[in-house]
Design a binder for these strands. Sequence first.
DNA 1: AGACTTATCTACCACTCGATACAAAAGTTG
DNA 2: CAACTTTTGTATCGAGTGGTAGATAAGTCT
Lengths: 204, 204
Amino acid sequence: MVMGRPRSFCTDKALDEAMEVFWRHGYDGATLAMLTKAMGIKPPSLYAAFGSKEGLLKAALDRYAERRSEHMRYVLAGATARDVAERFLSSIAESHTDPANPPGCLLVQGGLACGAGSENIPFELAARRAQGEAELRERFVRAREEGDLPEGSNPAALARFLSTVASGMGVLASSGADREALREVALVSLGAFPACGAAADGPG
Amino acid sequence: MVMGRPRSFCTDKALDEAMEVFWRHGYDGATLAMLTKAMGIKPPSLYAAFGSKEGLLKAALDRYAERRSEHMRYVLAGATARDVAERFLSSIAESHTDPANPPGCLLVQGGLACGAGSENIPFELAARRAQGEAELRERFVRAREEGDLPEGSNPAALARFLSTVASGMGVLASSGADREALREVALVSLGAFPACGAAADGPG
DNA sequence: AGACTTATCTACCACTCGATACAAAAGTTG
DNA sequence: CAACTTTTGTATCGAGTGGTAGATAAGTCT
């Protein structure tokens, strides 16, 4: 075993608490006092473990990404592109209104605009959002090759559309919209999605 | 004329500068130092004119609403519901990437999550976003009555969908997406919109 | 002119921010 | 045991926060 005094807290548990604080108050709005209180540790322990407030956010984002990757694996396993879109939107509607978490999405709530000294935080969050979009895009490229998306369709645009709706649903959820409202948005959004082999029934 | 020393700055000009700061940095990220520097005045003048930082934001939001109301008048004047949706989405794509302003939407960038002491700011912004959605909803209710939306369609859901996409486009724009990307999203989104009298051609 | 009213400027308030110095505590190793 | 390594708690750092007191400037009123 390693030498020295053992750590008195569980890193993952502490990260979960920190994640919730960042989620609810944003990066700038989350103060060291809030974070240390939620994590049950003192500032020196926080800095020894994560280096800085920004380092703590990145660690929390990594943990958030782990959670999301499970969802994405399920989403991307959809049989058709339309199936993938439906899974994506409905899972977003559920997760963004999960009472176990703050409403919305950490990657949106975390901070679209920050004050002096945290200008790079919005970029960090944007990069993580872009990753999910890229996964969808690759899946849709494959779908077009496999013929379940029309030849003329635009996989990049469809992925960006879904990612945009997801961000918008994050904004909606953060302002108190309930789960049913998000499901409705998901349903309407799905109407924008092309159907190939199946009957291309119009929206409504 | 009123008595006393006349004000040395133009309230509207100062508000435009403050709006830009809130837009770019968010409510919490915008400091008094930034605001007073941009407005070209000192703190006592700011407080005499607007009461508090929050009062300044609300005044800036009022001014923002004035600007938007012109756009909305044009949008709502569309001949059909689909026409309204198209005008709405394309005007959002333009305004959210207008190089004269910070990217995105003040009502989104302003603050989805805030720190202690500004918890009501996100509600304030959400209320203003909801107003635009309500205008769309009323227009779509009328459209259904007039028969250019199918009987079974849901005006509230359609309005919420458009509002959600607009918020998502704000998030997208704030992370550096260019105008063409937003136009693409607008185009795909329009595919979710029901067409009534015209040919209900599928998306693609 | 001189009283009155309002705005502006300088300087500063109490407070909170993220981050850290230092010593005591809690382990492992010889 | 003593030497070593790492973490923990206390107490605090300098910088920056939103906001204001008090004197002065710049107008209108009688």
